[in-house]
Nucleic acid binder design. Structure first.
Lengths: 188, 188
DNA sequence: ATATCTAACTAACAATCGTTAGTTTTGAAT
DNA sequence: ATTCAAAACTAACGATTGTTAGTTAGATAT
């Protein structure tokens, strides 16, 4: 399983996008980090925008497909919520840098902006519907569903900020304590 | 209480920084939105960097001072946590755009970067110590304190994304249901 | 050895960036 | 009406941006 030069560039670009944001990263920054001249990058990629689009759409697709499977499953609401949490943890661990771009640089998409926004809206709508079912059958606390959605989603979306191989929260702790914290709170 | 031209520029800059990020906003963007030429801005401000620094340091100072008061108070852990939540809600409502810059553009600070990082670290350390006291006296669930800290802080930091005068979650709902959701979870 | 392909290179482009200098307009106080 | 300061303007600067064109080095296959 070797990474092509193009994949190498994409991984490095994601890392730099995370550190400084898409707009602040120049093609020369990426090239320098690869020990290469900026023009050489264009033997492998079409544009800077292609880098961003690849990173974001690829990751967003993972979320969309994962959520679809959860929605269609016959589980209880709390089981579905646990699976959503696991989905976020897994994708985050797989490549935290991609999630930074997804969260912070999506507005710099050009061709694919509308497509991305549709995916994101669909994801949130699925999440919301799961919460509302749980609210209706009493499985979930009687509080504003938007706030519960927001609270969970905020935490899950910024997981990449806290997960790190060194110095951060490790994967095992995340998988055991994160669901309980989100579902049962800090006090309970 | 009228706003000076300088304050007007800062407020508008914060709005644009929120929409596109610091690096992607040009002085000409800010000037256009004000119906003015870019060079005219320099009659009121020293640099683009001054705009960012003012926005971020001013807001970070509010958090630092608010947290200091909470830490020094003689309340229970859960009362302190409720006050932290209220602090975030109040500062967020006061100017959501400033919080976007604080969260997303702090890495573009130049002179004030170290000062900001110190403030942020101090804030997190105070938050952590409150959680640990609650853990020690049994007031808080026996789970990884880092995850509880992360979970609350992630939600509170991205409040600005959800609060909106129109179409979002309103201030009253936030103040009533947010503390319960964070402290007691979704199920409980 | 020759041909082919990949991936690097140099050089340059038009556009845009933050900012400065110097000048003119505006509006309120005298 | 005159004065004066605030705030706008025009013009331009050097630097940097993403990207293109054309070329060359190095490996692989024939």
């Amino acid at each position: 399983m070797k990474v092509s030069r193009k994949e190498e560039i994409i991984l490095l670009a994601a890392k730099l996008f995370r550190e400084k944001g898409y707009s602040a990263v120049t093609m020369r920054d990426i090239a320098d980090a690869l020990g290469v001249k900026a023009a050489s990058l264009y033997n492998h990629i079409r544009s800077k925008q292609e880098l961003l689009s690849t990173i974001i759409i690829q990751t967003a697709t993972q979320f969309t497909e994962g959520m679809q499977a959860i929605v269609e499953s016959p589980e209880s609401t709390s089981q579905k919520l646990r699976h959503i949490i696991e989905l976020h943890i897994e994708i985050t661990i797989q490549n935290p840098d991609f999630l930074a771009a997804l969260n912070n640089d999506w507005m710099h998409l050009e061709e694919d902006l509308q497509f991305f926004l549709q995916m994101r809206e669909g994801y949130e709508e699925n999440f919301r519907s799961i919460i509302k079912v749980g609210l209706a059958n009493g499985e979930i606390a009687d509080r504003d569903p938007e706030i519960m959605l927001f609270s969970m989603l905020s935490t899950l979306r910024t997981l990449y900020l806290w997960y790190a191989k060194k110095g951060g929260i490790d994967a095992k702790t995340l998988k055991t304590d994160m669901p309980d914290t989100l579902l049962c709170g800090v006090l309970g």
